[in-house]
Computed example of a mutant assay.
Amino acid sequence: MGEEKRTRRALVTGGAGFIGYHLAKRLLTDGWIVVSVDGMTPYYDLALKRCRIEMLQKSNAFTAHEVMLEDMTALTDAYVAAQPDVVVHLAAQAGVRYSLENPRAYVDANLIGSFNVLELVRNHSPAHFLLASTSSVYGANTILPFGEMDQTDHAMTLYAATKKATEVMSHSYAHLWKIPTTAFRFFTVYGPWGRPDMALFKFVKAMLADQPIDVYGQGDMQRDFTYIDDLIESIVRLIDCPPVAGAPIGSIDSLSPVAPHRVVNIGGGHPVDLLGFIKVIEQSLGRRAKLNMLPMQPGDVRATSASAELIEKLIGYKPSTSVETGVQAFVDWYRSYHTS
């Protein structure tokens, strides 16, 4: 008889979060053992986070640890117990605008917390280390679509600066300790179980209450929206596509010349203007929005758009769900969640 195949194990930081919940759910469905580490910070409604964890705990293959990334002792205990084959580092202090109000939260979670994760990865090498970054690192770039080889030295917020720093820190660890590392840049992720601080959640909540919605930049903004299922499919495929030093797939590959480290956009490259996005929400809700037109906020960028060329070459896939389909799915979930 052949040797029995070992069940793969994943450590997901930020497992109570929007993306972490969906990734853990998918990995459990695919037969993985999943361990979550999450600080359960009150940046937004803790009830939403706890509900996500409760659903994941219906699987015997899931374990949750309520641990702050800054707490190295507790984080180490959780990591060692997890014995992960793969680490997906999603936990972070999120939000562009909140970084203007509470910058220290970003330094603590995104820099110190990520350093702690990197130290654990160095000492207990997984087969692949994957970490979340953001389209915000493109900062002042104005040439669209954003490509992984574009300059990212002009961050417009501390949030973006800490995520860029995490990318660079992970590169140094990948180089020094030969850790296969993929940093993926997210582009405005949305969908069921999404974050209450994101525009879609805010808009739907306000419109159902017949309240006006704040539309920044006078509505003259574009975002490359990525539906959550597309994002998770991309991450799952990337897990099995670890970078190999010295083996680029072409001139567009962001593979480091000195390390098994790659940066990948996860976005479809189909930006939608803000007013058009609001029209889609109106259609899904069957009601008109009351618009409170406002100027651009500090740190905001006018438009984002992902080059999807690299991700397509790597995994044969790119996000493609239409905003009409994605928004309707969110609205259906929102109504169900708030009436159950």
Rank of each mutant, 00 (worst) to 15 (best):
62 F>R: 08
40 M>G: 06
1 M>A: 01
92 A>R: 05
85 D>F: 07
301 V>Q: 12
248 P>W: 11
117 V>F: 07
259 A>C: 05
10 A>R: 09
334 Y>A: 02
269 G>E: 11
214 D>F: 11
159 Y>G: 01
240 D>K: 12
204 V>H: 03
160 A>R: 03
216 Y>P: 12
188 T>G: 09
181 T>R: 00
20 G>I: 03
119 E>F: 07
78 A>H: 06
253 D>N: 02
301 V>M: 14
326 G>Q: 09
27 L>T: 04
184 F>G: 01
70 E>A: 11
2 G>V: 13
241 C>A: 15
176 L>K: 07
121 V>Y: 11
108 D>I: 07
327 V>Q: 03
103 P>G: 13
294 L>K: 11
70 E>V: 14
8 R>I: 12
138 Y>T: 04
55 M>Q: 15
84 P>D: 03
310 L>I: 00
300 D>F: 11
60 N>G: 15
136 S>N: 12
196 P>N: 08
297 Q>H: 09
139 G>L: 00
264 V>S: 10
2 G>D: 13
313 K>Y: 00
209 A>S: 07
11 L>G: 08
183 A>Q: 03
316 G>E: 05
220 D>G: 00
284 S>T: 04
135 S>A: 14
145 P>R: 02
241 C>I: 08
78 A>D: 02
84 P>G: 02
40 M>N: 02
95 G>H: 01
100 L>M: 08
276 G>C: 07
288 R>Q: 15
182 T>E: 00
325 T>N: 15
215 V>G: 10
309 E>I: 04
283 Q>R: 14
157 T>K: 02
14 G>D: 04
179 I>R: 10
261 H>N: 13
86 V>I: 13
278 I>R: 04
316 G>T: 08
193 W>M: 03
320 S>R: 05
134 T>V: 07
332 D>C: 02
69 L>F: 09
12 V>K: 08
66 E>Y: 06
292 N>M: 04
211 Q>H: 13
81 A>N: 14
184 F>A: 00
245 A>Y: 07
214 D>R: 14
138 Y>L: 00
222 Q>Y: 14
25 K>S: 14
106 Y>A: 11
109 A>D: 03
165 A>Y: 00
40 M>Q: 08
328 Q>S: 15
183 A>W: 10
200 L>R: 06
318 K>E: 06
120 L>I: 01
